[in-house]
């Protein structure tokens, strides 16, 4: 009889997926760990306690990242939803959609580098506002593309129906369109939140080291060869999306084809 490889394969896969999480957590709890030891000399909450000390600035970075990503996710999702309607019903819809792909698909860091002059002129270079604006510019096109499919024949008919029943544009948005798109709005918010939360290159170019989001912190710690703090900030970076995903995994995944 043939031996089934399935349980074996499954265990390997679960291990492979869980390993990075466990390893990073372990690393964040370690200190004094020189080659070739397999176990660290110190294992405890030292690094996590340091989190609370303002010196590392990690807690500050965490909240700064939350503010930036929530702002970006919120503004990109709402404006993307409303404005994608104009795109979807526009006679030149395909050209406009193509145009919104450009800023989405280009490397954000190159995009940001070419734009930094204008950020300087606007006086938002190296500022949190600047980082929010910059990240908005790459997540807004995503939201536009994302909501493209919402505005079909059926939605149009629904809007028409609302107006023949006596509703104006505002009531069609508040009473019908927004409630209808509730699920999509949540997914889009989560996705644009993640674009911002994970963003490194663009933030480093526009923030020039003055706006230290968590990704910037991770990179700085790696540069300093402070891997324990690096792992600690990585944990902070992974935790919020993981929690949100646990609450509802369907928010995380959508297909962009």
């Amino acid at each position: 009889m043939r031996i089934s490889l399935k349980p074996f394969f499954l265990s390997i896969m679960v291990l492979l997926i869980l390993f990075p999480f466990v390893y990073l957590l372990w690393l964040s709890l370690s200190a004094d760990w020189s080659f070739p030891q397999v176990m660290p000399d110190y294992f405890g909450l030292k690094n996590w306690k340091a989190l609370l000390i303002s010196e590392t600035g990690l807690l500050r970075s965490f909240f700064q990242s939350v503010i930036i990503s929530v702002s970006v996710g919120f503004t990109a999702t709402l404006s993307g939803f409303v404005i994608s309607r104009n795109i979807a019903y526009h006679p030149k819809k395909n050209t406009l959609t193509l145009l919104s792909y450009f800023p989405y698909i280009i490397s954000p860091v190159v995009f940001g580098a070419c734009l930094s002059y204008f950020f300087l002129k606007l006086g938002i270079f190296g500022q949190m506002t600047g980082v929010i604006v910059a990240q908005f510019m790459i997540s807004f096109p995503y939201a536009l593309i994302f909501f493209n499919s919402f505005w079909g024949e059926k939605t149009k008919n629904m809007e028409d129906l609302v107006s023949t029943l006596g509703g104006n544009r505002l009531s069609s948005f508040t009473k019908v369109l927004l409630p209808l798109a509730k699920g999509m709005l949540l997914v889009c918010f989560f996705q644009t939140f993640l674009i911002s939360w994970f963003e490194y290159g663009l933030t480093s170019v526009i923030g020039v080291g003055k706006v230290q989001t968590l990704t910037i912190k991770v990179f700085l710690f790696i540069r300093e060869a402070n891997y324990f703090y690096g792992a600690l900030s990585s944990c902070l970076l992974i935790l919020p999306p993981l929690v949100l995903m646990y609450i509802n995994k369907k928010y995380v995944f959508n297909k962009l084809t």
Binding site: V14, I17, L18, P20, F21, L24, W197, F198, Y200, T215, V218, F219, S234, L237, I238, P241, L242, M245, Y246, K249, V252, F253
Partner: peptide, 13 residues
């Protein structure tokens, strides 16, 4: 659920 977990990891991490 586990299969979704890697999506919480950014490129830099």
């Amino acid at each position: 659920f586990i299969i979704y977990m890697p999506l919480a990891v950014p490129g830099i991490v």
